[in-house]
Amino acid sequence: MSNTRFALLGMLLFAVLFASEQLVTNQYVFFVGYAVLQYVVLATAWNILGGYTGYVNFGTAAFFAIGAYVSVAVNKLYHPPLPVLILVGGTASGLIGLAMGYLTLKLRGVFFSISTLALAIVAQAVITNWAFVGGSSGAYVIRPRFGPYGGPFIAYLFTIMLVMAIAAVVLARSIERSKTGVGLAAIRDDEGAAEAYGVPTLRLKLMATVVSGTLMGMAGAPLPFYVAYLDPPSAFNLSVAVNTIAMPLVGGTATWLGPVIGAVLLSLIQQAAMVTISSAVNLLIVGLVMVGFITLAPNGIMGLLKKRRPAQ
């Protein structure tokens, strides 16, 4: 399927889901849906660098929280519409990704991962000491009662996240199938050889980091309106980073579909566990599922499905 047709299919999916929003009377559905879609964006974004390129990023929380906090700061100054906040938050995280890429992409394997972890810690320290956005005591954001086109505001947030999720997946798929995608896969398989054959490895890695960081920041920008109260420990929560790594691993990192399956599956399980068991059991479930997949299906659900099919 061509990129255009896939994008049209995405728009069709959006139209169907958007139309069915009118039928939903229980707002809780939107709260759950938002959380699931947010993880679709994060997992897809992570996979561009972690799955396609093979650079494991432990700093998802940093990009996500920077998007959220830039959104808080800009909102405090100007009150622009939400899409503007998303663009500003995404740009900020993309720039952080560019800077981090320049400093760390010469590092390979586990050394790169450690430096992304360090980024998350440094960013949290900076935000905790930034009084304008509430510092350690957190920031309150008043969630409007209604969205700009009527309906509850949470339905508006859900719609926005839906657009981002579809856009992120369309983008990831087009990268995967482009010349750039083959270049990224070559870096993942053997970076030294890719370089020897004239693949501009640093440029491609920087591109992947920037795209990945931007999408994560965009996913974080509406967060203050979703939670209404944002403090550093929750914005930089370990669960964001762990979930974002677990989801592509569970779904499969080689294609765009893997992170989507992983994100939907894991976040639905977590949402169900939250209401039926307890909210603290979330990460335990993720941990168990991750251990199970790493030992039994290292290539994720997509890998299992592929095995079933006869080889070409």
């Binding site: 083959v182 270049g183 896969a185 070559a186 398989d189 053997d190 890719a194 054959y197 693949v199």
Partner: peptide, 26 residues
């Protein structure tokens, strides 16, 4: 100038055709 590196250094998880395409990346 092109080099065939020692030990071949193929991209094992890419197909033969994709491996060749990498050679024409410029």
């Amino acid at each position: 100038i092109a080099m065939v590196p020692e030990g071949r250094r193929l991209f094992p998880r890419l197909t033969v055709e994709e491996n060749l395409t990498i050679g024409a990346f410029r």
